[in-house]
Amino acid sequence: MRVTCPWCGERDRREFTVQGDETALRRPHRDAPPEDWHAYIHLRDNPAGRLREMWYHDPCGTWIVVERDTVTHAVHGTTPAREAAR
């Protein structure tokens, strides 16, 4: 699998650490109800299809949102997480 780091270009999967779907971008407020925190930490849509997923390019230290198909493994695009988080 090859993923394009926005700064370094297309790289092999072994240069990255993956950390689950992009739910991570939407952290609840500190005082949000426990259900929101439960959903944030544990519950996942886990789609068989397109998924936006958090990847970290280890050599350059960039978190990237990778849009990827979990059935075909096709990579449809990457965005620096800093931009996606805005």
Partner: peptide, 14 residues
Amino acid sequence: VMRHLDFVTQVLRP
């Protein structure tokens, strides 16, 4: 931890 700090600064607290 380094990855975690990058995550916080880039994702949670840009």
